[in-house]
Design a protein around this nucleic acid. Sequence first.
DNA 1: ACCTGAACACCGTTCAAGT
DNA 2: ACCTGAACACCGTTCAAGT
Lengths: 188, 188
Amino acid sequence: MSPTTNAESLRADSARVRARMLAAARDRMAAGGLDLSMNAVAKAAGVGVGTVYRHFPTRQALLESLAAQSLETLVATAVAAAREPDVGTGLAALLRAGLRIQLSDPALAEVLAAVDAVCAETLDLSRDLAAAIATLLDRARTEGAIRPDLTADDLRRLLCGLQHAVRIGATDDDADRYLDILLAGLRP
Amino acid sequence: MSPTTNAESLRADSARVRARMLAAARDRMAAGGLDLSMNAVAKAAGVGVGTVYRHFPTRQALLESLAAQSLETLVATAVAAAREPDVGTGLAALLRAGLRIQLSDPALAEVLAAVDAVCAETLDLSRDLAAAIATLLDRARTEGAIRPDLTADDLRRLLCGLQHAVRIGATDDDADRYLDILLAGLRP
DNA sequence: ACCTGAACACCGTTCAAGT
DNA sequence: ACCTGAACACCGTTCAAGT
């Protein structure tokens, strides 16, 4: 056995353990809610607590890792929306996607609302998201489709607020109407 | 000592203890945030944990007791808003007050967002609030000042969402703009 | 009657000890 | 190198024991 092989098998095993922990965390999240417990994740993944902490130094780090995939999808959607020929269509698509993805992934809702990320990957993705939104808003502003004072951070916060309004007990139909209300409110 | 005097002094003492616990809870809330701990409240009030539970059977009950005063104020504001000669002015006043009071009292924000109350008093006040909002919305609908499909529950949820959007890191100026955006979005 | 606080089963987090 | 799990200081909640 060369040391390389050994290291690689270690790495492969580590990756497998990491995946198992994330899966367990996702299960707990889907079942219970936002009360993600490190100890419970460890038990569910058949792993010591220390191993969870080795991969995710804090609860926030675990949350960000859970949300990474959704955040990536949201960034891609925002980039596509910014390229949409019709700005209004792009804006509507972005808001709708931003709401839907937050509702389907509570971890993303929390990460999107957090002031400061703890993982480098999350920071990068957040920057990309902000840039895409800013591009879309610039275009919309130029065409007079939105209030001139709207920033990318404003839109992010309003999107988080919309999510909260829906999660609090709204139906899917309600969610569509709230989306409509926000879109109407953004017009100049 | 007549038994009446004895019972009354017990009741008076109980009320004093209750007030001390609420004050301690309010302090903790103002300082730390939303992480209201029953044990910490007991210690800060110089009282056994059991005494806290005797007065507030659950954390939610304590939260509602904390929010009761703010909720009363909000109800009064809503009633006054419903009587405002100009519906638009009334609606704007209600939203502004609803946002401000939630920001100043995190307990109220949580109670307003909760699906079901646990204290009878909270239930009554919530019903009063819903009734006042419904009255205002009926008038606004008749005058064609708002979307016809808007319910009192919609407005409550949107108000909670607005609070969330602001708490997430917005400035006071941002809050005013978000308020404006919501008001604009509510128009038909 | 009312209050106390030890006790229970949890939580996030750390770290000596094992492989 | 990596993992384990007992240990620490907490949490919400209960309830026998005291006054």
